[in-house]
Design a protein around this nucleic acid. Structure first.
Lengths: 209, 209
DNA sequence: TGATGTGAATTTTTTCACAGCA
DNA sequence: TGCTGTGAAAAAATTCACATCA
């Protein structure tokens, strides 16, 4: 069996989220086949089966996939069968939006610490999560066993806080600051880049005219 | 010449952003070659040249690319040589974060209207931009000639507001709500999906252990 | 000489077609 | 019969190698 491409992983996440929703709506139906799933997600049914096939067999011929089973198995593949500890860096508007994001709990992704520069906020608790000064990253990250950091600080502060996180042993970072961060190879970095997304829309529109 | 893949377009946006920053730092240096650029962006120099080659010739053999010229030309390719009118739907934490995003002005992407359900906010102005009720989308979108909509409303409200936008003639939508929106083919939809991004990090970590 | 621009080779991803099993 | 799972084919994207030109 070949190594699954990264893009298959991100599609598995999409399938999982869909199944969570679908189950809520259609509590009665207990199976779904690849063609239905593809129709809902507006994609090719071959691709869904191919993505799954990298990881084993999940369905039943002639029947389709048992929804609960598929959901659990995809969750397991993705590593969502255990808890993960996250920290959120930056508690401005973006940080607050991310903090409030309901999807976290559902996926057992727990924000266990917040880091912010604002003296007003440091030491406080937000929904049971304490806000620390960035200088405390080394101690807190180790003590709370932080797996993943979310960076929602201003561009200017992003690299410095990243350095602290990396030194403290954080191995995965989701970066929302519009800047290219430098991290060692062992650290997995993903960027969410608003301007890139928007520009693709602009390009699309400008090719219409 | 072949049609450029979508992914080349998003990389052009990355090159452009880098060049904007680079120019600020290194005001003196007026050219850059593909190898330097690749080193900065941590990618392959062949790819940079290939991406550019879809759109013509931009450099000078033996010298590299004139930074200002390249910046202008990429901007033109992407459609950033003219103004675009955006509306922001949803003025909660996420909406506020997006509103404050500095990158917009730089790219001549102007938020010209905000839509929100909150009666407290409707009718007010935020930094010169008026907040309207969603029911006013048809009139406002046409009057202000809105090209692109950003959706930052709760999941539950996302499809309904999308329908209004589409009816009002908006042809490009950037969606931050964690839900698959249905739009007609003529409308370009891009999704920024936080959970998908995070799950890829989780998968990476869980394959390490 | 030095770095671009690009056809060709390679690799990756998607799509297809169908064998195989309930 | 109906739908999965998968090897093979096709398509797309990346990387390479080098002709080309300042």
């Amino acid at each position: 069996m070949k190594q699954p491409p990264d893009i298959s992983i991100s599609r598995l996440a999409v399938y999982l989220r869909f199944l969570e929703e679908y189950k809520k709506d259609k509590g009665s139906k207990s199976t779904i086949n690849s063609e239905e799933l593809a129709r809902f997600l507006d994609m090719n049914h071959h691709q869904i089966r191919k993505d799954l096939s990298y990881f084993g067999k999940f369905g039943e011929r002639g029947l389709g996939y048992r929804i609960d089973e598929l959901k659990d198995k995809i969750g397991k593949i993705l590593g969502l069968d255990r808890k993960w500890n996250l920290c959120l860096c930056g508690m401005g508007n973006l940080g607050s939006a991310l903090f409030a994001y309901r999807g976290f709990k559902q996926m057992r992704l727990n924000i266990v610490a917040v880091f912010d520069n604002d003296a007003q906020k440091i030491g406080r608790c937000i929904h049971g999560v304490k806000v620390y000064a960035p200088k405390n990253i080394p101690g807190v990250a180790k003590k709370l066993n932080i797996d993943i950091a979310i960076i929602a600080v201003p561009q200017i502060a992003a690299q410095e806080i990243t350095n602290k996180l990396v030194k403290a042993g954080v191995r995965a970072i989701l970066n929302f600051a519009p800047v290219k961060l430098n991290v060692p190879k062992r650290v997995k970095l993903r960027n969410v880049d608003l301007s890139t997304e928007l520009i693709q829309l602009v390009y699309f529109l400008s090719t219409l005219a």
